[in-house]
């Protein structure tokens, strides 16, 4: 992997595309993988610039994060051609319930297709412009988004002889019907 400064790349981006809203989120850990927080409306422009002008041809990972007041989507990008990376893009939704739309980057990196579906399935982020936004891990007709912290699991607890910790909690809830 060649030496690579995400700050310098961000400066170049701001010089070439002055209108976009991008903010550097510093990561003070030893890995120092700083990320770019981009506004949803600028995401496609930035993504196309990264792919076409800077050679970031590989989207290795897309994941979701459930924050207390919003949902976040994180893209990890590498350049196979220049052997640099990662550039980490973050996008945030307005809130957790109503304003959960974000632009899809599948037409920039096709590799994002399945992973955006997974984020839709497990976190409930709706990707505008995704060609085939269906559930992928859970079945069609499943209700809720299980990776969210507010997801309520079905009460299918069964007796276990050595229940402890959260399983014991679940057992007591199951037997008392939620009282206590």
């Amino acid at each position: 992997m060649n030496p690579f400064s995400t700050e310098a790349l961000l400066a170049a981006l701001k010089a070439q595309l002055p209108g976009v809203t991008v903010e550097l989120q510093r990561n003070e850990a030893p890995s120092a993988q700083h990320s770019w927080l981009i506004a949803a409306q600028d995401a496609v422009v930035v993504a196309q610039w990264l792919r076409d002008k800077e050679g970031f041809d590989f989207c290795s990972n897309v994941t979701g994060v459930d924050w207390p007041t919003y949902l976040e989507v994180v893209y990890h990008l590498y350049s196979i051609e220049k052997r640099i990376g990662p550039v980490i893009l973050r996008m945030r939704t307005g809130d957790r319930d109503k304003s959960v739309h974000l632009p899809s980057l599948t037409h920039v990196w096709r590799a994002a297709e399945l992973q955006e579906r997974e984020i839709f399935d497990l976190y409930g982020v709706i990707f505008d412009g995704h060609a085939d936004l269906r559930r992928i891990l859970m079945w069609d007709g499943f209700e809720g988004h299980p990776m969210r912290r507010d997801y309520v699991e079905p009460d299918d607890y069964e007796y276990e002889p050595t229940a402890h910790d959260h399983v014991a909690e679940r057992a007591s809830k199951h037997t008392t019907g939620g009282a206590e």
């Binding site: 079945w139 069609d140 007709g141 499943f142 209700e143 699991e153 079905p154 299918d156 069964e158 007796y159």
Partner: peptide, 17 residues
Amino acid sequence: YGPNDLIPASNLTLWRP
């Protein structure tokens, strides 16, 4: 497939909780 679980969650002629 149900909204949260399989319907039924088990075949009671074969298995009892």
